[in-house]
Design a protein around this nucleic acid. Sequence first.
DNA 1: GTAAAATTGATAATCTTTCTCATTTCAGTA
DNA 2: TACTGAAATGAGAAAGATTATCAATTTTAC
Lengths: 132, 132
Amino acid sequence: MNYSQQRNCILNIVVSNPIHPTAEQVYDIARRSYPKISLGTVYRNLNQLAEHGILKKICSSYGSVRFDGRTDPHFHMVCTHCEKVFDVELGEMLCITDKIGSQYGFRVTDYEISIKGVCSECDQKQGSGETA
Amino acid sequence: MNYSQQRNCILNIVVSNPIHPTAEQVYDIARRSYPKISLGTVYRNLNQLAEHGILKKICSSYGSVRFDGRTDPHFHMVCTHCEKVFDVELGEMLCITDKIGSQYGFRVTDYEISIKGVCSECDQKQGSGETA
DNA sequence: GTAAAATTGATAATCTTTCTCATTTCAGTA
DNA sequence: TACTGAAATGAGAAAGATTATCAATTTTAC
């Protein structure tokens, strides 16, 4: 895999913006540096980087796939109000997945956990009728 | 919400087929009973039933959204080989989500866990080069 | 610097899902 | 049982997300 300037830019965007961006969001940011970059290039690179394990595809929310610069096991909390995706640490899950593997005869290679709810910010705004 | 024959059929398909079908799969099965049913009707009903909490939308795998007739909290194991989605029971998760909620100030309303890996069936076939 | 391999931008194509709207069905009531 | 307004349907167009194609450009290794 060659590292073109565009690929580097795309990777940096995902790694340095822990917002779990969609391809479209990455595209918007990438265009600031490469105004002629095409959306196809963004999709191609995000998928290739994910295939190589350099970043991760996540499907925490409906609609578009999102990408995560963190590849170590962790969870996500998705706010059903503002649609933001937050990271959650919880080492305990590791032993739970092991348990599941042996209990169901399933060879666990990865897991993806999305906790849905309302983030504290939205929860506070809720009363005033605001929407993020 | 009126219960048309088509809506009943769609609901039955999802509830009685624990394969976590996509809209397209539901459509294919529904056509056996209602050859003229339209894909739009299938999508409309699946979404409405999900909005009413009668069934659940899941995004365990990429590509298409899937639907689940079980609405009680449970996990999914997704085989990366045959793409099948299996149910997993694990009550322990309930206290973990509570913990996460209080730790991060997040009001947890639901969660969705997908464990990815290879199911025992595919694991056995693997050596012989077969693909499901 | 050169050549082969990989990548890009532009655009078409595909796939999934939603929307529109005239027609039909449903549920409640007389 | 017939009537009526609301809800749902089927057909197809439209929108949104993603992938594929391909000539031109960039990258990498020598």
